[in-house]
Simulated scan of single mutants.
Amino acid sequence: MNDFYKGTPSYSVGHLDAAIEHLEQVLSLEGANSLFSQTYWRARVVQALATPGLAPCQYARLQRLLERIAEVRAMRKNSRGCERSIHESRADTRARRLPSA
Score class of each variant (00 low, 15 high):
3 D>I: 05
5 Y>M: 08
8 T>H: 04
11 Y>I: 11
11 Y>R: 12
14 G>L: 10
15 H>G: 13
15 H>F: 10
17 D>V: 12
18 A>E: 14
20 I>P: 06
23 L>W: 03
24 E>S: 02
24 E>N: 05
25 Q>L: 10
27 L>D: 10
27 L>C: 09
28 S>A: 15
28 S>E: 15
28 S>V: 00
28 S>H: 08
28 S>Q: 10
28 S>M: 05
32 A>C: 00
33 N>D: 14
34 S>Y: 03
38 Q>T: 05
39 T>Y: 07
41 W>F: 11
42 R>K: 14
43 A>S: 15
45 V>F: 02
45 V>N: 01
46 V>L: 08
47 Q>P: 00
48 A>F: 09
48 A>I: 11
48 A>N: 05
49 L>Q: 15
51 T>H: 06
52 P>D: 13
53 G>Q: 01
54 L>P: 08
55 A>G: 01
56 P>Q: 07
58 Q>G: 01
60 A>M: 07
63 Q>E: 09
63 Q>N: 09
64 R>Y: 02
64 R>P: 01
69 I>Q: 03
74 A>T: 01
74 A>C: 00
74 A>L: 06
76 R>Q: 10
79 S>T: 13
81 G>T: 04
81 G>V: 01
82 C>L: 14
84 R>Q: 14
88 E>V: 07
96 R>G: 00
97 R>W: 09
97 R>M: 11
101 A>D: 00
